[in-house]
């Protein structure tokens, strides 16, 4: 059986909120290392990969592999019933029909309990090889969100060009063009504002802004976001969570004209 207790319901609320517009029905794969999810959007252009390590829960117990097929709209409805600071416990039997969610207030004696019916989801699973990326950019997640939103007002796509000079986000559309260039930057007092660019070779790729803006819904999960690029492979956008847990998005580049 599965029993996984999160100190704050907020974490799962934010994760589900960040991915629910991209993917609808997904398997939450539970085993002794934690709870993982991998799902592609309908157009197979973007992929979500979530890992909540067992260390992110206290306690965490999962005796055997269990796949919880959950509709994210249903999960969102139930998670709305939890206060952000509630303690959340996920429970399921070994061959479950439902997943049980318990919300406990740390400050009062309220205990809420919900069951969500599970679905049988036959999901395509992609193998993503370990990649040595040509460019890795760490930057404030709010900054990345602002750049994507700003450029989307002008164009449907953005080119991300990384050289030793810095990283340039550029777009052009019907009304004109725009670009934002960032250079490496270290703020000793506020390291969350750092921009770090690790480059082994120059990279230039073009991506759909619609998807990037969607990924940025995860900005509330982490102060920093990591962008990993190599020519001719999908972009990795990573939001690191505590205990080595993460929320990753992969986006295929746009090709041709």
């Amino acid at each position: 059986m599965l029993e996984a207790r999160l100190e704050q319901a907020n974490l799962l609320k934010k994760v589900v909120d960040a991915i629910k517009d991209l993917v609808q029905d997904c398997n939450f794969d539970c085993n002794d290392s934690g709870i993982a999810l991998q799902a592609m959007d309908n157009s197979h252009v973007a992929l979500v990969s979530m890992m909540l390590k067992s260390e992110s829960f206290s306690p965490f117990r999962c005796d055997r592999n269990i796949a919880l097929g959950i509709n994210l709209t249903s999960l969102t409805k139930v998670l709305r019933c939890a206060a952000n600071e509630d303690i959340l416990t996920l429970k399921a039997e070994d061959a479950p029909d439902v997943v049980n969610l318990v919300f406990e207030s740390a400050e009062s004696d309220r205990l809420s309990e919900y069951d969500i019916k599970l679905m049988d989801i036959d999901q395509e699973h992609l193998g993503i090889p370990e990649t040595e990326y040509a460019a890795t950019i760490s930057m404030p997640s709010a900054e990345f969100q602002k750049i994507c939103r700003d450029l989307m007002a002008l164009s449907e796509s953005v080119s991300i060009e990384c050289t030793k000079e810095g990283v340039k986000f550029a777009c052009s559309g019907d009304i004109g063009s725009g670009s934002v260039t960032l250079r490496s930057h270290t703020n000793v007092e506020k390291p969350q504002l750092n921009v770090e660019i690790d480059l082994s070779e120059p990279v230039a790729l073009t991506f759909s802004l619609k998807y990037l803006v969607n990924f940025c819904k995860a900005s509330g999960l982490s102060e920093q976001v990591r962008l990993c690029l190599s020519n001719e492979v999908p972009l990795l956008v990573e939001y690191a969570l505590s205990n080595n847990s993460y929320l990753r998005f992969y986006l295929a580049p746009k090709i041709g004209d």
Binding site: M40, H44, V45, L126, G127, I128, K254
Partner: peptide, 14 residues
């Protein structure tokens, strides 16, 4: 507009 590629062209199904 540029053609939007597909993840399946980079990663294989497992």
């Amino acid at each position: 507009t540029p053609f939007q590629n597909n993840l399946g062209e980079y990663y294989t199904l497992v």
